[in-house]
């Protein structure tokens, strides 16, 4: 087990290395020159050279990538003297626009995104795993039709639309929940939750649609399986059999959930925008619109790392639920 995780971690690092290379090359070969943006208008050629040197973009892309990697492990300092900006390890890059290391930026935005992601994921799992198996038990009858119709509707609805509708209805018409902003958990847990209720529901419901459909089909497979028939043949009542069926649904759901959670933790662009929450998604969008490549590369890599770690965790959790995975 330990050796397996070690091996997977090494592979994960190599994958991250490759991803960082691709992301780096992609963004740095794009048309926008971060130094020119930084230099402002008008921009004298000498000033531009200075800025480029300061940002380290005067070297070729490959060397820049190596500098970036080095920064990840030992940190780096941009420029010298009074102007110098230090970015301590792990340095995911530096935002010259905001004169902060991307690591700090992500770190400062993480509570917002994590609050959104964990709550939203919990809602989606709760709703999906309640309604999906229920629909399967009532297959072909009205609860099933309702769940399937509802999930189809939700899957087809964009997050921002649902968010805006929620704001209109619950925020302005009924005036029951705040429509924007974020209050830190440490400041006021009640306000924190109160501000998050609506976005949780938006993220939760949209993801729940997928879970409900998936869980319904898995549950149908389980209910039709020989081992549950055999269990009934020993005299187990329907209630017991359904409980066993639900357990069978959890195994594949874990895979889905792990990856979804990783995806959500890397930032929900639309939801954060709609509810004016300054999370990682908002950071990324801000970085893109201000041509702040440090932020773009940093958040992209952060997302990739999350997905890879999520995958690893899923594999290990899967093994502990499903005994068949344990011994090859």
């Amino acid at each position: 087990m330990t050796s397996y995780i070690a091996r997977r971690l090494v592979v994960s690092l190599l994958v991250l290395l490759a991803i960082s290379f691709c992301v780096f090359m992609l963004f740095y070969s794009g048309p926008s020159d971060p130094a020119r943006v930084m230099c402002g208008k008008p921009c004298q050629p000498e000033r531009l050279t200075q800025v480029k040197h300061f940002m380290g973009t005067d070297k070729n892309a490959f060397v820049q990538w190596l500098d970036f990697l080095k920064g990840l492990f030992v940190g780096r300092t941009y420029g010298t003297g009074a102007e110098a900006a230090h970015c301590s390890a792990p340095c995911f890059g530096f935002s010259f626009d905001q004169r902060q290391s991307v690591t700090n930026l992500i770190w400062s935005r993480l509570p917002v995104t994590a609050s959104l992601a964990l709550g939203g994921a919990a809602v989606s799992l709760l709703v999906g795993m309640t309604l999906g198996p229920l629909a399967a038990i009532f297959r072909g009858r009205w609860p099933d039709a309702l769940v399937r119709g509802g999930s189809l509707f939700l899957v087809a609805t964009p997050a921002y639309l649902l968010g805006l509708l929620g704001i209109l209805l619950f925020g302005f018409q009924l005036n029951v929940v705040p429509v924007s902003g974020y209050v830190a958990l440490t400041d006021s847990p009640v306000d924190w939750a109160w501000h998050l209720v609506l976005p949780w529901c938006v993220i939760g419901l949209i993801n729940a649609a997928g879970y409900a459909r998936f869980a319904r089909n898995q549950m149908l497979d389980e209910l039709g399986s020989d081992h549950l028939l055999a269990q009934r043949a020993t005299g187990a009542p329907k209630r017991t059999v359904r409980r066993a069926a639900r357990r069978g649904v959890w195994v594949p759901i874990t895979t889905l959930f792990g990856l979804d959670l990783a995806m959500l933790l890397s930032g929900s662009i639309f939801t954060e925008r709609v509810f004016s929450m300054h999370g990682i998604g908002d950071l990324l969008i801000g970085g893109v619109s201000s041509h702040d490549l440090g932020i773009v590369v940093g958040t992209a890599l952060f997302g990739a790392a999350l997905i890879i770690v999520g995958n690893l965790v899923v594999d290990i959790v899967q093994g502990s639920i499903d005994p068949r995975v344990r011994r090859g």
Partner: peptide, 27 residues
Amino acid sequence: PEKQRVPLRGSSIAMIFQDALAALNPY
């Protein structure tokens, strides 16, 4: 009714299946 059938299954009348791997709970 089903409620009265349940206690008879397994104790009075039991069943085995063709595919034992499928008929046993893998978990």
